[in-house]
Measured scan of single mutants.
Amino acid sequence: HEITLHINGRRVKLRFRDEKAAEILKEAAKKGLDEEELKKLAEELWR
């Protein structure tokens, strides 16, 4: 699955395995994680 989040006016595509991962990524984006941090988090969730 993929999700596209808008971060600092940019579109960031993240891959994720399940809905739980999608929710975690959305929450992290709301908390203000930047693009690099979100990509790292997405990679961690993928494993």
Results as ranks from 00 to 15, higher is better:
Trp46Phe: 06
Asp34Phe: 07
His6Asp: 14
Ala22Cys: 11
Asp18Asn: 11
Arg11Ser: 14
Arg11Cys: 15
Glu27Arg: 09
Ile3Met: 15
Arg47Glu: 14
Ile3His: 02
Lys26Met: 14
Phe16Pro: 02
Leu38Arg: 00
Leu5Ser: 00
Glu23Tyr: 09
Arg15Phe: 10
Gly32Ala: 05
Glu37Tyr: 09
Glu35Ile: 15
Arg10Met: 09
Lys13Met: 08
Leu45Val: 03
Lys31Asp: 11
Ala22Asp: 02
Leu45Thr: 02
Lys30Thr: 10
Ile24Lys: 10
Glu27Phe: 05
Glu35Thr: 09
Glu44Thr: 09
Phe16Glu: 00
Lys31Cys: 06
His1Pro: 05
Ala22Arg: 14
Ala21Gly: 11
Lys40Met: 12
Ala29Met: 08
Trp46Ala: 02
Thr4Glu: 12
Ala29Trp: 14
Ile7Cys: 05
Leu25Pro: 00
Leu33Ala: 14
Glu27His: 08
Arg10Ile: 12
Lys26Tyr: 11
Ala42Arg: 01
Thr4Asn: 05
Arg47Thr: 14
Ile3Tyr: 03
Arg17Leu: 08
Leu38Glu: 00
Phe16Met: 05
Leu5Ile: 12
Ala42Gly: 05
Gly32Lys: 04
Asp18Thr: 14
Glu23Asp: 11
His6Ser: 12
Arg10Gly: 06
Glu36Asn: 13
Lys13Ala: 07
Leu14Ile: 07
His6Ala: 07
Gly9Leu: 02
Ala28Asn: 06
Leu45Lys: 01
Leu41Gly: 00
Lys13Gln: 10
Ile3Gly: 01
Arg10Ser: 09
Arg17Glu: 03
Glu27Tyr: 07
Phe16Ser: 07
Ala29Pro: 01
Ala29Asn: 06
Leu14Met: 04
Glu44Cys: 05
Arg15Gly: 03
Asp34Glu: 12
Glu2Ala: 06
Lys26Ile: 14
Arg17Pro: 05
Phe16His: 08
Lys13Thr: 15
Leu41Ile: 07
His1Phe: 15
Leu25Cys: 04
Asp34Val: 09
Val12Glu: 01
Arg10Ala: 07
Gly9Trp: 00
Leu45Ser: 03
Val12Gln: 01
His6Val: 15
Glu37Val: 08
Ile3Asn: 01
Ile24Thr: 12
Glu37Ser: 15
Ala21Trp: 03
Gly32Asp: 04
Leu33Ser: 09
Glu2Arg: 06
Glu19Lys: 12
His1Asp: 10
Glu43Gln: 08
Asp18Cys: 05
Glu2Asn: 07
Leu14Ser: 00
Leu33Pro: 02
Glu36Met: 12
Leu14Cys: 04
Glu27Gly: 08
Lys26Leu: 13
Arg15Ala: 06
Ala42Lys: 01
Lys30Met: 13
Val12Phe: 06
Leu14Glu: 00
Val12Ser: 01
Arg10Trp: 03
Ala22Gly: 13
Arg15Pro: 07
Asp34Pro: 12
Leu41Val: 04
Ala21Tyr: 05
Ala22His: 05
Ala42Met: 05
Leu41Thr: 02
His1Ile: 11
Arg10Tyr: 07
Glu23Thr: 13
Lys13Asp: 04
Leu25Thr: 01
Leu14Asn: 00
Arg17Val: 08
Gly32Cys: 06
Thr4Met: 08
Leu5Pro: 00
Glu19Arg: 11
Lys26Val: 13
Leu5Asp: 00
Lys31Val: 09
Trp46Lys: 01
Leu25Asp: 00
Gly32Ser: 04
Phe16Arg: 02
Arg17Gly: 04
Leu41Lys: 03
Arg10Phe: 08
Gly32Phe: 06
Gly9Gln: 03
Leu38Asp: 00
Ala22Asn: 04
Glu37Leu: 10
Lys31Asn: 15
Leu5Trp: 01
Gly9Lys: 03
Glu23Val: 11
Leu25Arg: 00
Glu35Met: 10
Ile7Met: 05
Leu33Arg: 07
Asn8Gly: 09
Asp34Gln: 12
Leu14Phe: 10
Lys30Asp: 11
Arg15His: 07
Thr4Tyr: 09
Thr4His: 08
Phe16Ala: 15
Glu44Asp: 12
Leu33Asn: 06
Glu19Gly: 08
Glu44Trp: 11
Gly9Cys: 05
His6Thr: 15
Arg47Ser: 13
Arg11His: 15
Asp18Pro: 02
Ile24Trp: 05
Trp46Arg: 02
Leu5Phe: 10
Ile3Pro: 00
Ala28Phe: 07
Glu44Ile: 12
Glu36Thr: 13
Lys40Arg: 13
Leu38His: 00
Ala42Ser: 08
Asn8Gln: 08
Trp46His: 02
Lys20Thr: 09
Phe16Val: 15
Leu14Gln: 00
Leu25Ser: 00
Leu25Trp: 06
Leu45Ile: 04
Ala28Lys: 05
Ile24Ser: 06
Glu27Pro: 00
Lys30Trp: 07
Leu5Tyr: 03
His6Ile: 15
Ile7Asp: 01
Arg10Leu: 09
Arg11Ala: 15
Glu43Ile: 08
Leu41Gln: 01
Leu25Lys: 00
Val12Lys: 01
Ile24Phe: 08
Glu43Ser: 08
Ala29Lys: 03
Ile7Lys: 02
Arg47Asn: 15
Asn8Met: 06
Lys39Thr: 10
Glu36Gln: 14
Arg10Pro: 00
Ile3Glu: 02
Glu44Ser: 09
Glu23Ile: 12
Lys39Asp: 04
Thr4Phe: 09
His6Pro: 03
Ile7Ser: 05
Lys31Leu: 11
Arg47Trp: 13
Glu35Phe: 11
Leu33Gly: 08
Ala28Arg: 04
Lys30Glu: 12
Arg11Gln: 15
Lys13Cys: 07
His6Arg: 11
Lys30Tyr: 10
Leu25His: 01
Trp46Ile: 03
Ala21Cys: 04
Glu37Gly: 15
Leu5Gly: 00
Glu23Gly: 12
Ile3Val: 07
Arg17Cys: 12
Glu36Gly: 11
Glu36Asp: 11
Arg11Pro: 15
Ile24Val: 09
Lys40Gln: 14
Arg10Thr: 10
Glu35Gly: 08
Lys40Leu: 12
Glu19Ile: 09
Leu45Phe: 03
Arg11Asp: 15
Glu2Leu: 12
Leu38Pro: 00
Ile7Pro: 02
Arg47Met: 14
Glu36Lys: 13
Leu41Ser: 00
Leu25Ile: 11
Arg10Asp: 04
Ile7Asn: 02
Ala28Ser: 07
Lys31Thr: 10
Leu45Asp: 01
Lys40Thr: 12
Asn8Ser: 06
His1Leu: 11
Leu25Gln: 00
Ala22Tyr: 10
Val12Gly: 00
Glu2Ser: 12
Lys26Asn: 06
Arg10Cys: 08
Glu37Thr: 07
Leu33Glu: 06
Leu5Gln: 01
Ala42Glu: 04
Glu43Phe: 08
Ala42Asn: 04
Asn8Thr: 03
Arg17Lys: 12
Ala28His: 07
Glu2Pro: 03
Lys13Glu: 05
Lys39Ile: 14
Asp18Val: 04
Lys20His: 08
Leu14Pro: 00
Leu41Asn: 00
Glu27Asp: 13
